[in-house]
Design a protein around this nucleic acid. Sequence first.
DNA 1: AATTAATAAATGACGAGTCATCTATTTTGC
DNA 2: GCAAAATAGATGACTCGTCATTTATTAATT
Lengths: 157, 157
Amino acid sequence: MEKNQYFKAEALRYLILAAQRQGNRWLNDMLKGIGLTASQAEVLRVLHERRGISLKELGKLLICESGSPSRLVERIVRDGLAEKIVHTKDSRYVTLQLTQIGEEKEQLVESMEQQMYNRLNHIYSDKELEFMCTLLSRFLEGQPISEALKERGFEIK
Amino acid sequence: MEKNQYFKAEALRYLILAAQRQGNRWLNDMLKGIGLTASQAEVLRVLHERRGISLKELGKLLICESGSPSRLVERIVRDGLAEKIVHTKDSRYVTLQLTQIGEEKEQLVESMEQQMYNRLNHIYSDKELEFMCTLLSRFLEGQPISEALKERGFEIK
DNA sequence: AATTAATAAATGACGAGTCATCTATTTTGC
DNA sequence: GCAAAATAGATGACTCGTCATTTATTAATT
């Protein structure tokens, strides 16, 4: 029944890719209703939790993007969901703050995400969720992205 | 220790996203050496296995893209790795074939992928790989992408 | 104080991804 | 045979995602 030594590793690779894409499509389908994308929604959630952080700090917290989220934020500002405030003491920094509309949309994002999490809770038992998280964490150990996950509180211990 | 009912589901969501991104960066780093992207590499692998399939059939087999891979293939043809041949009986169809250079690069892709699979085999036991595949398959059950995975042979049974 | 380093953010360039729409061709149903 | 429906692929528009480079500002070095 064994194909070759790489069979399961390759299957895992494509299953992770497929799961990420599928989940993204679900979320984007819901978010489309309020004119947001999954990446923009992640920014709103982070800015709601940590008002006044800089672009650089935001970048270190996002999972959806590894570099500087300049343009992601640019579109969010353009759409009136957040505003940039140049730091008074060090004008290299730009701090970010959600607008009233941004805060309102953030609330809607939360409820949409919960629909997705309900779905996951329905598919998987608590132990299964935990086991998958543990195994995926092992894969990411030592990578820069692990810092972001840790900062965001997604540590499974 | 429980944060809230959605904590693990949310962690899983972001861990899958992070793992997909991380794996993609690894692969792209390697592939950059031969001027390819991970998506292009997937196309080469599929076209190597199934010579002469149409764009539509290719689209149904790819995990990296859900729609029609018109432009992905466009760039591969532009770079001289494959050629399009209009079907003689039904000129709506375009069939695809790797060029000599395309075949050579496909071989290099295989060996680079194996490096990644070796890494996965080192991180995980056989049972762990299998369990993760089983659980991720459950998430994708009933979704169109499952057909692609099945066609590609990534069924864990 | 002037020059150099370092740092934050913006920008250019490119290739994905996705959805909607358009074009060309073939099938179908009468 | 011909108009309508179906189908394959191309294309437009938009947003990611990533890397490299540039710009502006501050910190460090001499």
